[in-house]
Design a protein around this nucleic acid. Structure first.
Lengths: 192, 192, 192, 192
DNA sequence: AATGAATGAGTATTCATTCAT
DNA sequence: TATGAATGAATACTCATTCAT
């Protein structure tokens, strides 16, 4: 059953989120999945592979999907709206996933340097594309810095998500819905 | 000699930056400090304590200094300028320190939840204070979201710094000086 | 079908010979036999049992056969000739079997102490019997050491076989046929 | 202290001899050496390294020593006498060492193919040299088979030693002193 | 204070064996 | 009988920390 891979991944997300990658014990992941330790190794190479697959199961779909959507949406503002909505929605129902994505990922040197860094590059490239076209269409300012401006947008979102994910109150200080509205408003001011 | 503590901390920053916290070996830190492993333990409790002291040696000074400066500077824009300048200057000459601060720190669960989270809180509070006063003075928009807007500024800076620190080219894609200018321009548009 | 037992034993000999007993994986034996792992356990107790049955499938027949032949052959020299011919022929067409017999067998403590040791005892006893009768018949020297002389013969053969089996060249340095002739010549000089 | 390496090696010989290489537990070796497990790894790479060093500590000295002695002794018979005496003496006081050397060694595939096989080659070469010179001097038969005759001598000795080492009686069936005399007598008959 | 040899708790991973289908 | 997914006991090795010198 491919089902089993998903069961294990879900268990791993849970344990990684609460214990951290290095603090997570394979035994605990197995227990959380209601399986034996050995079974994990029938489906995954090793512990790091778990983290990698969590990451890639999301990323592998996310980027191509966003890219194709960018082609369909013409209005630059709507594009950014879509980028934000999609990204924030992804984590909105799963703060544990957000923790693993935003924090645990960085603990694996190889993963961060391989996949993680590439993800940021992809996203930054996506944003840059939107800005460029917005500038060409004349709806955005001509003097946007294409190196730094995308990082500002990316960093804003990561900062907000990290804060929201780490917030240990049952209900965070703000909702991601709220955050999106503020981000959009800020974005409009930034680029026009 | 307090000198020796600094020697060890410098060695630790170097090793943490290149190997990561979990990948760093005390033996290597000792070698980098030209000391024996045992000596480290005359000055620090344990490995995590090293990370903590790296963090606090910076933070303990930074926040009070910024706070006092905030009292001396009256113009909200100048305040933000100072916040950015100080923060970016801190890392500009030491990318290794930036890596440890921005990435390694998050690997220590307790440190992140204790000190790291508190640092963000302090900074966010600082920024919020600046915004509040700017609004009261009538130079900033009245409708700033005081929960989220500070995170946007904080996140922007962290995003830029992380990208800049992880960049494995000898000379990064952009200078922090450049970044500051763009950040300030964006900030003006955001808050007015 | 008893057929299947043989298929598995042949697969086991192949894998034991190339990977060694401890290096052999049941999965690989199963694959070599074109069967699933579970099926092996329908025919054999466990991994060591495979080694034991390889050994006994040979030995169980070999010793009684040799013993009965010894009764039929009267001339002591012919007896030794038969012992050598039979033993060397057994392995001549199957170097893999020789490896398993001469080397892998020793890796199983219980097997070696149980069956292996007993095999040597049986063979040594056989040789001793031949020598005794040769002495009684007056064709062999009277002063043969009945403790050690049989071991010399046994050891000579094992030494030659081991060297021949381990030789990693496609064609070994010498043939077992050659070896037999030299052994016989040496034997004549030894006992007369 | 270099002493500690020896202590560990002695403990390893004891445990390897009684439990076999694969059956030996590092914990037990540590206990036998009155040290902690970790200490073993300060002096040896890993478990196989222990076996290797046991082997090489003997071999590294034995072969060069024998070679130089062969140059000093002129009489071929005396040379063989020395080879036998030295080899048998080496194990006479240490049956455990004999077990490790003759049996455990073969369990390590790499060790056996690397060092073990080379040892046999060295010894066989040594014997062959003696035979060649004996033939040239006219004291040995001209028709000795230089491929197989050395293996007969080597195998005889290994056969005798193995039997003697495996013998689980407190006092073995025969002494190595006795064995040497019989081997020499057999040797004379073989080569003349 | 400094050393670095000794410590030993801690854990990912393997793989022979089982058993539900 | 045959399967092969699931099991989980078993263990070599690491490395932060200690402590006798």
């Amino acid at each position: 059953m491919d089902n089993k891979k998903e069961i294990i991944l879900k268990a791993a997300i849970k344990v990684f989120a609460s214990q951290g990658f290095f603090g997570a014990r394979t035994r605990e992941i197995a227990k959380a999945a209601n399986l034996s330790e050995g079974t994990i190794y029938n489906y995954f190479e090793n512990k790091e592979d778990l983290l990698k697959e969590i990451f890639e199961s999301i990323w592998k779909n996310l980027i191509p999907e966003l890219e194709s959507k960018m082609k369909m949406i013409k209005n630059p503002d709507d594009r950014v709206d879509h980028l934000l909505t999609t990204t924030l929605n992804l984590f909105d129902t799963n703060r544990e996933l957000a923790k693993v994505f935003l924090i645990e990922l960085k603990k694996s040197k190889t993963l961060m340097m391989d996949s993680g860094y590439r993800l940021i590059q992809d996203i930054v490239r996506l944003i840059r594309g939107v800005l460029v076209e917005g500038m060409e269409l004349g709806v955005y300012r001509k003097d946007l810095d294409l190196n730094i401006e995308p990082l500002i947008l990316y960093g804003s979102v990561e900062g907000i998500l990290t804060w929201w994910a780490l917030d240990d109150k049952e209900v965070p200080d703000f909702s991601l819905k709220q955050a999106k509205d503020v981000l959009m408003k800020g974005y409009f001011r930034l680029v026009r």
